[in-house]
Amino acid sequence: MSYLPYAVAAWLFLVGLAGVATSKNLIHLAVCLTVTQSASYVLLLTVGYVKHGNAPIFKGIPLGAPAVDPVVQALTLTDVVVSVVVVALILALALDAHRLSGTVDPDGIADISG
C-alpha cells in the first residue's frame, strides 16, 4: 500500500500515452504529452520524499531538521520550465504540418511531400 504513489506516476504515464496514441488532433496530442511528462515529475518527487520531512530550505528552520531530497527537486524544477519550450516546439511542428497539409489530424497528414 505504500507503493501507491509510484503507481500514480505509472498511471499518469499510461494515461498520457493512451491519449497520444488515440488522438485525432495534433494540438490535443501535445497536451496529452504534458500529462506524460507530469508522470516523471511525480515519480521523481515521490522517490525523494522523506516521511514528515521539511522542504530543503533552511531559512527559519534549524539545520539538522529532517528534510526531503533536494536533488530530485532541482531536476524537477528545471524540467518543468524547459518542457514548456519543448511542447512549444512540438506545437510548432504541428502548425507546420497544418500549413503544408491543411489539417491537424495526425492520420490526415500522411501524404505531404516536399
Binding site: 515529475y41 511525480v42 518527487l45 515521490t46 520524499y49 520531512g53 521539511n54 522542504a55 530550505i57 528534510a67 526531503v68 527537486q73 532541482a74 524537477t76 524544477l77 518543468v80 520550465v81
Partner: peptide
C-alpha cells in the same frame, strides 16, 4: 497542490 504536500516548494512555484 501535490508538489506542495510533498514538501517541494520550488517545483510547485515553477509548475
Amino acid at each position: 497542490l501535490l508538489f506542495v504536500v510533498l514538501a517541494a516548494p520550488d517545483p510547485a512555484l515553477s509548475m
